[in-house]
Nucleic acid binder design. Sequence first.
DNA 1: TCTGGGGTCCTAGGACCC
DNA 2: TCTGGGGTCCTAGGACCC
Length: 421
Amino acid sequence: MTSTFALVDCNNFYVSCERLFRPDLKNVPIVVLSNNDGCIVARSQEVKALGIKMGTPLFKVKNEIVKHGVEVFSSNYTLYGDISARVMQTLEQFSPHVEVYSIDEAFLDLSGINRPVAHGQNIRSTVMQHIGVPVCVGIAPTKTLAKLANFAAKKFTATQGVVDLTDSQRQKNLMNITPVSEIWGVGRKLTKKLQALGIETALHLAQADRRFVRQRFSVVLERTVCELNGESCLDLEKSPQPRQQIVCSRSFGDKLTQYGDLKQTVCEFAARAAEKLRSERQLALVVNVFIRTSPFDKAGPHYANAATGTLPVPSSDTRQIVDMCVRLLNTIWQEDYRYAKAGVILTDFCFPEDVQFELFEQPVGAATHEGALMRAVDAINHKGRGKVWFGGQRPRKDWYMKQANLSPAYTTQWDNIPLVK
DNA sequence: TCTGGGGTCCTAGGACCC
DNA sequence: TCTGGGGTCCTAGGACCC
């Protein structure tokens, strides 16, 4: 029996989250900004209609924002994460297998469902009723086609938010009017290269010779071609895969020029990365620290560098990781630059039970003294980060980050829960 | 003045081994 | 004069995603 996939995608997710607690903003144009209030990362329908593009730096469209009375929000990931979890939980009643693909999307296994469109409508109205977030549903025999169906469900209002692409003639009709750039897995670079070969629409790509595509591009794009032809190559991921990499990095609201300031941010990133690592119950072997000036900074010379180090044994101990990061930073730090961004990357993970320790080495894991200390630190910091920290870390949270228009944590902080009069 | 952050996968080329 | 071939592992970089 052939599979059926549904892609459920929240509409303008961050904007929808902000509107949940501000019904007065229902038809008001809204944007949500990236960290540091730098770029626009979510737009309401009204803002999209104004032609403001995703990822635009705020300062470039400041005049339009003011002119059209656009409401501006700093990003509130605590709120979005919590609403996302509620949406995903609601979706579980509609399928035995739900793959959470991103904060605002999930693939559902709808194999064997008799009336998929009715099922999709049911999903929409239930999520709206329970959570208050609008979603669209795309249904098709492959993930790539389900993505395409979802695109159509969003774009064409006559579909009422649900598109079923089970029928191959419908697939062709839609692909014929869809630019190749809209296909999942085709980004800016590939779009250009494909267009140069005369492949302009999704249908052109679907009809391309797959051996040619593999040879000229990659196995990834070859898979896309297969999926556009209804051959499922990408399965539902039934259980989330363990992470392979943890990154903690930020651009700074104000450029940093002092070693001490940069060191403190790097220590903070190291500590957060270690915390994430422990929540994954993994250990890391390799640590990378990078620092750089802004490529847009005309005031001074540019500098970017990174250093990689290997821990003596895989660890998730904040102190070991912080120590290593400071040593790495010292090898790349240079005076007289205006630093705009820094970060810590952990890689080469393993599980504590799989570690082969050197002779005479003391393992740093859950069973040891050090593990107990880390567990205690995590437990104390669990509700509201920053009660306990190690030397070198900045005690104040995000002191370097701009968040001028942050909404309250309506659903996760007692103080911020809305009152009903 | 002001330009995000956190991920994944694949590939080519060099190092190294026998 | 003559200087292999095949395999693996690692890394950096490039592409993509949301």
